[in-house]
Design a protein around this nucleic acid. Structure first.
Length: 567
RNA sequence: UGACCUAUGGUGUAACUGGCAACACGUCUGAUUCUGGAUCAGAAGAGUCUAGGUUCGACCCCUAGUAGGUCAACCA
């Protein structure tokens, strides 16, 4: 549980720059609040897959606990059986764990607290602070008013405690139809805060719950379950996103009226990223309409998608640290995410040679049938990674982009009459090219090599402008390469003219599947293995990959200053 | 025509809570390199939304604006 650091070093050390939440916590500790105890929680609703925004929240909550020697629970906010499913519970547990965090057995469910929460509701009724309302959903909405106009009181608002208790118990007993009655808090229909206008506490839902089955037919609303769950678990700092800011008065009201342990809710701004959408609804839509292959499509900003794309837990944790925590709206440059994977993979991914857009290269003065084993370094950033042998033969493949017939002056690669080094092998000189007579496309590049320039030899260090990667035409393995690009063309996909929606910004070329070659050393690769294809980028073995049909996903390309120079 | 929140280089966050703005990404130079990667050295780029005020002194405090966001689901 540590691979590649951050989330504040996964230890208690405070290396991270301070954020306002940590400032609050530190002051609470100074003041001896909660006896200096720090207890957070990550509270997903199991109704979808987690995305990078959740990753930030996970890192914040678990990271905060780690930093202050506290605890962090994993709690499922499962109060709406019609939307939730165990499939999501499982994926969430897997993702949190994969990210590198451990809830140490403190896996809780709001549904575990249903009996307790039900009791809370009765207590409120007994105090005259809650009532059963028979109005329809439409009527309640109507009487709620608007943010600028006060609401009206329900005709059922002043029922007696006895009647309320009786009705509520019968709701629980299943005597009433779905939607016929609800339990509401009695607060203030004229409050400028809509959430304080007699909010719903309980509603009737005759749907089987993924954990409690048919035990209940009334379910607490978020506002009557979340804070209560926090309280029951002794959560000291209940960290959530900004849209819950307006819920805080209600959160506090419930805690106060119930006279139970009071956690402190603190809100921060959710993560937004360029070239992507982040709402569960939109992500679900992309999946449902097959714009992507599933929740774990490597183009998705989901944790499962990023994992399949080749991201490492450490890179995501580091990203979460770098984006910071604050209350202002923000849009993070997706380039920062890419920086984080590159930084991580540069240090950990073994190098391998692969040719993505092949053109044949023939070394005319290299004996036919001869095989020479070249020594290759697995990772120049990590001596421990060792070396390997790569077969060199007369016929090779190199990258089509590495050759130009009529190159500009800034082009350092192969061209007629020019010399380059083949990595780990020889310096070669281009003598001629063979073209397809009809298309004019180059089919073969003919070169000669200088045997004295074999890598590692004493006099091999002649200066050449460029070094190319290559694979042996005879030994290379064919592979399917999936080149991913951003899913959306626009930096802000939701920014669209009237009448259109974010889907018009979908990038039609976000996935290109091509055939390429990789050196034979990768033969036994397993799903999610990570490599750097030299000079190209970081790739990982896809879950679809089989020994006789290798599939690699491009996680991210290497920085390419030549591409930039070309414009 | 309400309430609440926010406002610092292109982006994201800092600034010991009053002492003339720092870090990261990005950008641009140069060095180095058997990855046009990495690494190393350096540069440009904001005077902190606006207008007042308090103060010897304000990004930090006050007032009024402006701009953006959130809130009217028997969702969370």
């Amino acid at each position: 549980m540590s691979e590649n650091k951050p989330a504040s070093e996964l230890t208690g050390e405070s290396k991270t720059p301070t954020n306002f939440i940590h400032s609050i916590i530190e002051e609470d500790i100074r003041n001896g609040k909660n006896d200096g105890r720090v207890h957070t929680r990550f509270p997903p609703e199991p109704n979808g897959y987690l995305h990078i925004g959740h990753a930030k929240s996970i890192c914040l909550n678990f990271g905060t606990a780690l930093k202050y020697n506290g605890k962090c629970n994993l709690r499922f906010d499962d109060t709406n059986p019609v939307k939730e499913d165990v499939e999501y519970v499982d994926s969430i547990r897997y993702d949190v764990h994969w990210l590198g965090f451990d809830w140490e057995g403190r896996e809780f469910y709001a549904s575990d607290y249903f009996p307790q929460i039900y009791q809370f509701a009765e207590n409120l009724i007994l105090k005259g602070k809650a009532y059963v309302c028979d109005l329809s959903a439409e009527q309640i909405a109507e009487q709620k008013g608007t943010p600028t106009r006060p609401g009206q009181e329900s005709p059922f608002r002043n029922r007696s405690v006895e009647e309320n208790l009786d009705l509520f118990r019968r709701m629980k007993a299943g005597e009433f139809a779905e939607g016929s009655r609800v339990l509401r808090a009695k607060i203030d229909m004229t409050s400028p805060n809509m959430h304080m206008r007699d909010p719903l506490l309980y509603r009737i839902i005759h749907t089987e719950h993924h954990r409690t089955g048919n035990q209940w037919c009334i379910y607490p609303m978020y506002d009557f379950a979340h804070g209560q769950s926090d309280s029951i678990e002794g959560i000291t700092h209940s960290i959530c996103t900004l849209e819950f800011e307006v819920h805080r008065p209600l959160y506090d009201w419930c805690i106060r009226e119930l006279e139970i342990f009071a956690p402190q809710q603190i809100e921060f701004a959710r993560l937004n990223m360029t070239y992507t959408v982040m709402s569960k609804r939109k992500l679900l839509e992309l999946v449902k309409n097959n714009f992507v292959s599933g929740w774990d499509d490597p183009r998705m900003p989901t944790i499962s998608g990023l994992r399949r794309r080749g991201f490492t837990p450490g890179s995501l944790r580091n990203f979460s640290d770098l984006v910071g925590v604050a209350k202002r709206e923000n849009v993070i440059d997706v380039g920062l995410l890419e920086f984080c994977v590159r930084e991580d993979l540069n240090k950990t991914a073994n190098r391998v040679m692969g040719v993505i857009n092949p053109v044949k290269l023939i070394i005319t003065n290299f004996p036919e049938g001869q095989v020479e084993e070249m020594n290759a370094v697995n990772n120049p950033e990590d001596p421990e990674a060792g070396t390997r042998k790569v077969n060199f033969t007369r016929e090779l493949y190199i990258e089509r982009d590495d050759f130009m017939e009529d190159p500009p002056s800034k082009f350092f690669r192969l061209a007629p009459g020019r010399e380059v080094r083949l990595k780990y092998a020889y310096i070669i000189k281009c003598e001629s090219v063979v073209k397809d007579p009809v298309t004019g496309e180059i089919t073969e590049i003919h070169c000669t090599h200088d045997p004295e320039t074999l890598s590692g030899r004493a006099n091999s260090n002649r200066k050449v402008k460029g070094t190319l990667h290559w694979v042996s035409a005879q030994f290379a393995l064919q592979a399917e390469i999936r080149l991913y690009d951003r899913l959306f063309l626009s930096e802000s996909p939701e920014d669209v003219p009237e009448g259109e929606d974010y889907k018009t910004n979908l990038n039609p070329d976000s996935l290109k599947v091509i055939k390429g070659y990789v050196e034979s050393s990768v033969a036994g690769t397993q799903a999610l293995d990570k490599f750097q294809f030299e000079r190209l980028g970081y790739f990982c073995t896809d879950t679809d990959s089989k020994p006789d049909h290798l599939v690699f996903n491009r996680t991210v390309a290497l920085k390419d200053s030549w591409a930039k120079a070309k414009n």
